[in-house]
Amino acid sequence: MNPQGGPRVLMDSSQIGRTIRRMAHEILEHNQGTKNLCLVGILQGGALLSQRIGAVIESIEGVAPPMGTLDITLYRDDLAIRAAPPFLRESDIPFSIDDSRIVLVDDVLYTGRTVRCALDFLMDLGRPSSVQLAVLIDRGHRELPIRADIVGKSIPTSRQEKVRVLLEDNNESVTLVRMSS
């Protein structure tokens, strides 16, 4: 704990591992197995997380659900108020999403605007039978009527803070960083 506002570690590697395993179990419970189940990670943060969840699902059920990634930049509502739009990363959905049960995966749920983009993107790709949302961290401050179905950990934050999720090999942590105002 650092009352002066330095980075505060919210989850370490073993806590993240346990949480991801629990999230995978919840996804399987919600969907009663892996039938028509697909995981779609929102770039950047959701891609690694969806792979981790997918690996756990495979170890439990013996089959890996189809996995994809979305770059939601083209659907952002703040493009016109930003200086220059970024280069795109390739969205990769290598399966038909029609009639599938999609679990959208992102690392942090904040305003809900990213999820709105991802939903619009998915609807342009086809007609899934359902879409659920799984996030590692729910930090509050929603600006749209969106909630997660599966939450790793809910953390009360202030808007002056930033939640940093690292899921690299040998470098896993969730930290709360206070931004200098």
Binding site: Y75, L88, R89, L125
Partner: peptide, 23 residues
């Protein structure tokens, strides 16, 4: 290279059910 990367993600658009993005 950035333009090529961006163009790459537009290539798939022609095979989608809705062939438009709102940007």
């Amino acid at each position: 290279e950035g333009i090529f990367k961006t163009a790459d993600s537009f290539l798939d658009l022609s095979s989608r059910s809705v062939r438009k993005v709102p940007s």
